[in-house]
């Protein structure tokens, strides 16, 4: 081991959650579940062992999408719904980096829904952390794709009348390699899930139940509803899909793990540009 590598290994061991803290004050409401997610993420990153400058956090728009600036990592806060393709671009160009996309249920499942399906299918080695509060919080309380059908709101009095969709079932059907559910009220378990997701090859998706204090205070009752997942299904995608569709939406833990290959990390150069240009030569 070279001196530099020894120093790297030593500093990696020495990483502390506070090393991942930027010091910026979150805009989140007091009591917001996202504080717990941020803390769990910082602890997980310290355990994961890669220093802040080798981690890139990418987000879209919404309360939870403010998270990258609260860490000391490289980050990008883009437009609504497009965190996943941006993160894919980072990972494809720089497979050496630890790439994490974060955001909310509106950002990821509604405006960004198509990208979610294709990110699962593409199965790049990255983590996607969705802080799912089942409401559009930043625009002050509209139902999202995961909101219960009868949830009353100004824009949909008496409820939207639409069945919420199940992002975990979608992720399994789409092709993600790692599908889990966490809860911001159980930050220790969430930290472990994040570490496992970071280290699992392929696309790791964690839907984190993260209550909204301002518009969905009843979600604080989730701490009574959550329970450990019955079992983690490995490699049998059909069985995992059936199990997720059958569960109550409050099982915490890893629901599915798979070993599906992803795209090649990079291609090896076979020719030079001047060789390639020769195909256009005429009248040599």
């Amino acid at each position: 081991m070279s001196n530099a590598a020894i120093i790297d290994a030593a500093s990696a061991e020495a990483l502390d959650p506070s090393d991942f803290h930027s010091g910026a004050t979150p805009i989140w409401c007091p009591g917001c579940g996202d504080y717990g997610v941020l803390s769990a993420l910082e602890h997980a990153l310290a355990i994961n062992g890669r220093p802040p400058h080798e981690v890139v956090l990418v987000s879209g728009i919404g309360c939870s999408s403010r998270l990258p600036a609260y860490t000391s990592c490289y980050g990008f806060h883009g437009v609504h719904g497009r965190a996943l393709p941006f993160a894919a671009g980072v990972k494809l160009a720089r497979p050496d980096l630890e790439v994490i996309a974060v955001g909310g249920d509106g950002d990821g499942y509604s405006i960004g829904g198509n990208h979610f399906i294709h990110a699962c299918r593409r199965n790049l080695d990255m983590l996607y952390l969705v802080m799912d509060n089942r409401v559009y919080g930043m625009t002050k309380g509209q139902p999202s794709p995961t909101t219960e059908a009868d949830w009353d709101s100004d824009i949909a009095p008496g409820g939207l009348g639409l069945r919420p969709f199940d992002p975990l079932a979608l992720a399994i059907a789409g092709g993600a390699n790692f599908v889990a559910r966490g809860f911001s009220g159980r930050p220790q378990e969430l930290k472990d899930l994040i570490v496992e997701g970071l280290r699992w090859p392929g696309f790791a998706f964690i839907d984190v139940l993260s209550p909204c204090m301002a518009f969905r205070s009843e979600e604080f009752g989730w701490k009574e509803s959550v329970h450990p997942v019955a079992r983690t299904i490995e490699d049998d995608r059909a069985a995992a899909h059936a199990a997720v569709l059958a569960e109550d939406g409050y099982s915490l833990g890893v629901l599915f793990k798979d070993h599906r290959p992803s795209l090649p990390a990079r291609y090896v150069a076979q020719s030079s540009l001047s060789e390639i240009e020769q195909q256009f030569a005429v009248c040599r």
């Binding site: 890139v56 393709p85 941006f86 671009g89 980096l97």
Partner: peptide, 26 residues
């Protein structure tokens, strides 16, 4: 690919431009 680079067929143009911005950020 011959040059060691990569072309990605995105799911739509919203993804295309954001992948490009992401790769460039990288």
């Amino acid at each position: 690919q011959n040059l060691g680079g990569r072309l990605v067929l995105a799911e739509d143009e919203l993804a295309s431009i954001n992948m490009v911005l992401g790769a460039s950020y990288g």
